[in-house]
């Protein structure tokens, strides 16, 4: 019995010794505390594509009078030398012309879309008195000549521009939006500066913008109308400089808002401009005719007694559009 007890004790001691050996070897390892902090990031996405397409003017235009069939077929307005021209009764829409500025993208940064008009020229006959070439007058000596005159009470710019914005399958006509939403007093003011339902001349638009751009009523109306077409935008701004012949509109987008819309610049020169004075004769027919004669004189034709008007009169029309999308800091 004694020996068995001894054996048991010996066995237990052996096992304990072996276990202790294992534990001890672990305790002699030194402790090292390690820590690691890591972070990573990537470049935020941009991917905004801005484009401008189209040619605003042409060198010939189809007649709107379907009964007309001239030497050049259906074209009622044809440039003599290939220059692009405008004339009463022509328009970008009817000629299937239009300059479109498109933007598309969903950047991860706030962005500002800007559309600038530069190098703007407009067909303008300043207020004043001019020879009336629509009325051939017989003089006392029996000869005929253009001796009558007409007077313009304010500058006459016959080509009316309009901006149409398309997005989300909807269309916003800026002139229509202003007519539909401006209070009567403000609308009357805008009309006094040349606004019509078809738009206004660039010249008049700059004047309107300059006079009323600080008036939040106009910008709020346009921004509200834009909001129905272009979601995620805000802070619509208008600037204009009549002397420099520039305008700029801008619209801001928050990060991750889809920019997908198109501006279309439309223009037209109404065939019958102003109030009807007599049957078939309209208020500004004389002004349109004078401008046409001036254009002919500029091309080398001689018209006896023609006096060229003073600046800022112009028979040239031009506009350069620049569209940009810029990250907002």
């Amino acid at each position: 019995m004694k020996k068995n007890t001894m054996l048991r004790i010996a066995s237990i001691l052996l096992v304990v010794t072996l276990l202790s050996t294992c534990v001890i070897s672990g305790t002699f390892a030194k402790y090292v505390t390690k820590a690691e902090g890591e972070d990573q990031a990537r470049v935020a996405k941009w991917g905004v594509v801005v484009s401008i397409e189209g040619n605003e003017f042409a060198d010939k235009y189809v007649a709107t009078d379907e009964a007309y069939l001239g030497a050049d077929g259906e074209y009622a307005v044809v440039s003599a030398n290939g220059d692009q021209v405008v004339a009463p009764g022509t328009s970008a829409k009817e000629a299937e012309l239009a300059m479109t500025a498109s933007v598309k993208g969903t950047p991860e940064v706030a962005a500002r879309y800007t559309l600038e008009g530069k190098g703007i020229k407009d067909v303008v006959l300043p207020k004043g008195t001019y020879t009336d070439y629509t009325h051939l007058v017989k003089a006392d000596d029996g000869t005929y000549g253009y001796t009558d005159t007409f007077t313009l009470d304010k500058d006459y710019a016959p080509v009316k521009w309009n901006l149409v914005i398309e997005g989300k399958g909807q269309t916003l006509n800026v002139a229509t939006a202003l007519y539909d939403n401006l209070p009567p007093a403000n609308l009357a003011q805008a009309e006094a500066y040349g606004l019509t339902r078809e738009g206004c001349s660039i010249f008049d638009a700059i004047v309107i913008i300059q006079k009323v751009a600080g008036n939040e009523g106009y910008t709020n109306i346009v921004e509200a109308a834009l909001g129905q077409i272009v979601s995620g935008g805000r802070n619509f701004q208008l600037e204009a400089d009549k002397d420099a012949g520039t305008f700029k509109l801008s619209y801001d987008f928050d990060p991750n808002k889809e920019m997908d819309f198109t501006f279309t610049l439309d223009w037209n020169w109404k065939f019958e401009n102003g109030a009807e004075i007599e049957d078939g004769i309209y208020e500004f027919d004389a002004a349109d005719t004078f401008l046409g004669n001036w254009a002919a004189v500029k091309q080398g034709q001689t018209i006896d007694g023609f006096v060229e008007p003073a600046a800022p009169a112009s028979v040239e029309i031009a506009a350069t559009l620049v569209a940009t999308a810029t990250q907002i800091d």
């Binding site: 820590a35 902090g37 990573q40 990537r42 470049v43 996405k45």
Partner: peptide, 21 residues
């Protein structure tokens, strides 16, 4: 870079390691 980032991840990684004994 912003346009490239539309299709590719352009990444920067920073790791700070410490150890003491």
């Amino acid at each position: 870079l912003g346009n490239l980032a539309v299709d590719d991840d352009l990444e920067l990684h920073i790791i700070i390691r410490t150890k003491a004994w």
